[in-house]
Amino acid sequence: MESVLRLHQLHKAYAEFVLDHIDLEVPGGYVTGLIGPNGAGKTTTIKLIMNLIRADSGGVEVFGLKHDRHEIQIKDRVGYVGEEQFFYEQRSAAWTGNFVSHFFSAWDPDAFDHYLDRFELPPKKRIKKYSKGMKVKLSLAIALSHAPELIILDEPTSGLDPVVRREVIDLLHRAAAEENKTVLISSHITDDIERIADYIVYMVQGRIAIYASKDELLSSWKTIHFKQDSVPASVLESLEHVETQMFGSTGITRDFPVIEGDLTEGISSGSIRVESVGLDDILIALVNGD
């Protein structure tokens, strides 16, 4: 599996926050989701990849090219949607499309018009009058209209209503599945990532806490509900964040396949129940674990 994006010991220190020597390889042709609480370093990481800020140390390679030396070539092949959208706001979407078309080697004006139409963006209206969600959609339209091999999105769905959000997510999924594009998407709406991601990166406090395939993650993390004193000590040891209340206890495990055997008896007698987790349950466990 070839990696399209490689971060090597990437380090950036701010007064209040440190992105701490991150290593990451994003495989080509898949959707990788970047999950983390606010302030975990998702945006910093993405800005470093896009060479919008300078790293203190460490390296970024995109398509095997050094990201600072080959900036123009890389940005030509990357579709980027940032956490904030910037345009010449006195101008229209049509003007913007024409303006940026001069800089991308593979700009497709028909595709751009198609996305404007599909996202219901009035091409002649000043961007200043667009809503936040419309600006995100315009940014997406630009990102998708120059045949990018890698699509990097920083919280793209946060300003969108659920209907458009779903549409955007499906669009990205199709890009990865059918057109073999690579997608790196950060979001705190884990729902979006759960639907389309193949790989998940959890960032907590400037570090990568977990990097695994989604399926692997969801089959090894489980929520366990149990009657007090009904589980063996070995199980109890692998449970995190055990909460006990009047009607039983609940914990989360990251080693379900390991403890599964010890649970069968409790499960059949009804004193233990195992439940699938969502990506946000894992996030909460990771954040509270610190």
Partner: peptide, 9 residues
């Protein structure tokens, strides 16, 4: 008494 409420149910 052992009660579990599951959103998946």
């Amino acid at each position: 008494m052992f009660i579990v409420i599951s959103p998946l149910n």
